[in-house]
């Protein structure tokens, strides 16, 4: 039973970060209908940038975090302006490919600057665990769950009440209608890309702190978040949260219980098996908008 609980809690922690990364996907998809395959690289850049500021500038943690957020915003704006804007109105394969190409470029830049070795992350949290009921939970885990929850709540409120958030939803619903209501679709795209970049950068910092180091494998989380968004529905923030937690728990449980039979690695593939099953049964996920087309 302890084993089960431990796996579940680990799953919830990892899941909360998946939810954060998935949020980045959902924000971009909701406003522009683009799925950003370079999300993993955004994570990576965020983590490396935070590390670089911390090491070179010797500033307090929060200042470094603030600078990371600012630079991620700029990165998102830059990507949208240079690469994504010329793609408006192009077929979906082109848009997929352009984000894949972007991910290659970003990965190359990261490798060129920081190499491929693992960079140790400074310990951001005390190592003594906190007791929750019978189980010891590490501070880092707790912090990442709480901060993910705060961010997710903030964005849910943002999309419901803030003027810009509502404008983003309107743009997602119909770009033409949004334009005729005086919303600048270009600005909305730019905002959504920079929000996605910021969310991913924060996710990257959290992941780096949890793992104790950063290397290229961090970008894989970007791919791992795909089953999450599909499970939750590509255009649902609530879905991203729930999907993240479900996939996180599922992957840890399946890894914990099935690894002995398969010789490891179940954790990596289980989300994708679930993904195929979901797509066959409920292609638009738990909360995604259903487009009915019968051919």
């Amino acid at each position: 039973m302890d084993f089960f609980l431990q796996l579940t809690i680990n799953g919830l922690v990892v899941g909360s970060i998946y939810a954060l990364v998935a949020l980045g996907f959902v924000i971009i998809y909701k406003s522009s209908g683009v799925l950003n395959f370079a999300q993993g690289e955004f994570l990576l850049i965020g983590a490396y940038f935070f590390l670089a500021i911390l090491e070179n500038a010797r500033v307090p943690l929060l200042v470094a975090l603030g600078l990371t957020v600012v630079s991620a915003t700029l990165l998102g704006l830059l990507m949208e302006r240079l690469v994504l804007r010329p793609m408006i109105g192009e077929p979906i394969i082109s848009v997929i490919m352009v984000t894949l190409g972007l991910s290659s470029i970003l990965r190359a830049i990261v490798q060129g600057i920081w190499g491929t070795d693992t960079h140790p992350f400074p310990a951001l949290f005390e190592s003594s665990p906190i007791q929750i009921g019978p189980l010891p939970v590490s501070r880092g885990y707790l912090f990442s769950v709480v901060s993910s929850a705060v961010l997710l709540l903030a964005f849910t409120l943002f999309f419901r009440f803030a003027r810009v958030g509502v404008a983003m939803r309107a743009t997602a619903f119909s770009q033409q209608v949004a334009l005729s209501m005086g919303i600048s679709v270009k600005h909305i795209f730019a905002i959504s890309w920079s929000i996605a970049a910021v969310v991913s950068a924060l996710g990257g910092v959290l992941l780096g702190a949890l793992r104790g180091g950063v290397d290229g494998s961090l970008a894989v989380i970007g791919m791992k978040a795909l089953p999450v968004v599909i499970l939750g529905g590509l255009d649902s923030i609530g879905g991203a949260i729930l999907g993240g937690l479900i996939i996180g728990v599922l992957e840890n449980l399946s890894g914990g219980y099935l690894d002995p039979y398969f010789g490891g690695g179940v954790k990596e593939v289980a989300p994708f098996v679930v993904l195929v099953l979901i797509l066959m049964v409920k292609p638009y996920g738990l909360f995604g908008k259903v487009r009915i087309e019968r051919v």
């Binding site: 490919m97 352009v98 894949l100 190409g101 991910s103 190359a108 830049i109």
Partner: peptide, 12 residues
């Protein structure tokens, strides 16, 4: 990394 970057750049 150069190879990767040039490939991505060519596509974009």
């Amino acid at each position: 990394s150069l190879k990767l970057g040039v490939f991505g750049l060519a596509i974009v």
